[in-house]
Design a protein around this nucleic acid. Structure first.
Length: 325
RNA sequence: GGGCGGGUGCCGGAGUAGUCAAACGGAUCAGACUGUAAAUCUGACGCCUUCGGGCUCCGUAGGUGCAAAUCCUACCCCGCCCA
């Protein structure tokens, strides 16, 4: 399965939330004639602006069709869905491929910026995602079974169909158990054997921003405060009026933390503290995810010197080499 | 000065003689993850360990008792009330 010919080069910028990915990507895009694709499961949704830290906040931008031109750099995969819809990895992967092809055809460099590790990997590592769209009815049915017969019985059933699942799905992780069953039932094949990787279609350079934990958490806390000042609460109020809390867009950090507050069940500062905490937890999960990817070139941020310029310079150098090679 | 309540692991907070290294929650750390992924889920969390176990521990110091975080005595802190 070798891809013939020259592979297109793409640059990927990853890192935990609030690490400064967005700005670094913008910088690189300007230097290298790039265009940006957001590998982010939340900025895809319209109206969720402040809480998802959309890249255009606080910047000059305009819209052209579905593309956001921020600081003169096109950004894709932003605001393409209503919060009542559900965007999935598969959707991301498909459209990202299309966008990349388009960018490359215009002799520009695609730059993927992403906090959503799964999305990034699906694209870069060529995940072959089982072609089984979520089946609501089936899921409901399985959930009912789970309730009636219990977790261990459902899990045992799953293991009978596909023993290897034991290695990577915990019996308590109902969501994953149900998805595995869904895939197996619909395809008649083993879930564990369907999770495959293709050879990547791209030659990719992955840069990761790494900040000392303490520094990162400080930045997270500060960013939350800033979001509040920018009017996050009003934003959430407005959206909550129109969309149900059960939509997956509303399950995101920055929104669900205000559910109880808006219902008058919780104090505001408590909600804000939860938001900070959940964001920290999220950052940690992202770090865990990216850590295992040995292809990432980590750019270490010096917490004492607070020297972002030299980090940018280093990133720039690495990219230059990559592109000219 | 008098009265009452209380001092438990990083924090909150159970426990009032044996089954207690001490429930539960939070924080923190580590991890899993292929169509909800900013989702969902797991583990560790006094110290040491050849993972069998060993050691230290519930304000401090003594005491009772086979056995104490739990009972007694003194002392030191903290909160509220009376003066």
């Amino acid at each position: 399965m070798k891809t013939l010919g020259k592979l297109s080069k793409i640059i990927i910028v990853v890192g935990p939330t609030a690490s400064g990915k967005t700005d670094l990507a913008l910088y690189l895009a300007k230097k290298f004639n790039g265009e940006i694709i957001c590998a982010d499961s939340r900025t895809v949704y319209k109206y969720l602006n402040i809480g998802t830290a959309k890249p255009y906040i606080g910047k000059k931008y305009y819209r052209k069709n579905n593309i956001y031109i921020i600081d003169d750099i096109p950004h894709y995969f932003i605001n393409i869905a209503e919060p009542s819809h559900r965007i999935t990895v598969a959707h991301f992967k498909k459209t990202a491929h299309r966008i990349i092809n388009d960018i490359v055809a215009r002799h520009k460099i695609p730059i993927i910026v992403g906090g959503t590790g799964l999305y990034v990997d699906a694209l870069v590592q060529g995940y072959e995602i089982p072609r089984v769209a979520p089946d609501r009815k089936l899921r409901l049915k399985l959930e009912k079974q789970l309730k009636r017969y219990g977790e261990s019985r459902l899990y045992q059933g799953l293991l009978e169909l596909d023993p290897d699942v034991k290695k990577f799905i915990d019996p308590k992780n109902h969501r994953r158990v149900i998805r595995a069953l869904e895939v197996i039932i619909k395809t008649g094949e083993k879930f564990s054997e369907l999770r495959k990787k293709n050879n990547s279609k791209y030659k990719s350079l992955i840069l990761g921003i790494n900040l000392p934990r303490e520094e990162l958490y400080n930045r997270v806390n500060k960013r939350v405060e800033k979001m509040i000042k920018l009017g996050l609460i009003n934003e959430v109020k407005k959206i909550a009026k129109k969309y149900s809390w059960s939509h997956s867009a509303m399950s995101g950090i920055g929104y669900r933390q205000f559910k109880d507050y808006l219902k008058g069940k919780e104090a505001l500062d408590q909600a804000i503290n939860s938001l900070k905490r959940d964001t920290r937890h999220y950052a940690k999960r992202q770090i865990t995810w990216f850590k295992r990817n040995k292809d990432i070139i980590w750019l270490n941020f010096d917490g004492e010197k607070k020297d972002f310029p030299s980090l940018y310079k280093k990133a720039e150098e690495i990219c230059k080499k990559f592109i000219n090679n």
